[in-house]
Amino acid sequence: MIVLADGRRGLALGIGLIAVGLAVLAWTTGMWLGGALLLAGGSVSIVALLRTGRQDWGLMPAGSTPRLILAAVGAVVSLWLAASVTTGPGAPLRFAVIAVLGLMAARLLQGHSAVAVLAAAAGLALALAGASALGPNDAGLAPYLLAAVIAAGATFLPVPEKRGA
């Protein structure tokens, strides 16, 4: 959604999907509080996106076919990396983290709108917190807390909005 949308509603939906997905994955590994923090960070980010600025979806505007192809190819490559190239438990988390990191990096490179870049940064923070569960040692709550603060704070940064005619 973050790759495909330009409008605030579309970006908010994207952040929401990332937060819910990673929170559920954290809960499956027993990180109840960590998952709740991700959900809280994502929720604040959504509120910040929907509170100000022009409210529109901006889904797949004209000329966004390359973005659609990028999202599909990104998902397939991430699935291949998570399920085939890498082994061991936690394949869904590996898929989610690799897909979000890869697609957010792509969004950052091709995005010229400040709102989209900030939403991508919020998505990055949530994915990095998810990645901490892949480590051999228990990372504790610190990465989840920091990621939630970053995701919540990113969309509050003042952004100059383009005004209509």
Partner: peptide, 22 residues
């Protein structure tokens, strides 16, 4: 924000690859 955030994404991908088995 573009370059530093891209750095974060690249470092994150590197971190994930360092941690997974395969």
């Amino acid at each position: 924000l573009r370059a530093p955030a891209l750095a974060v994404a690249l470092l994150g991908v590197g971190l994930v690859f360092a941690r997974v088995e395969g």
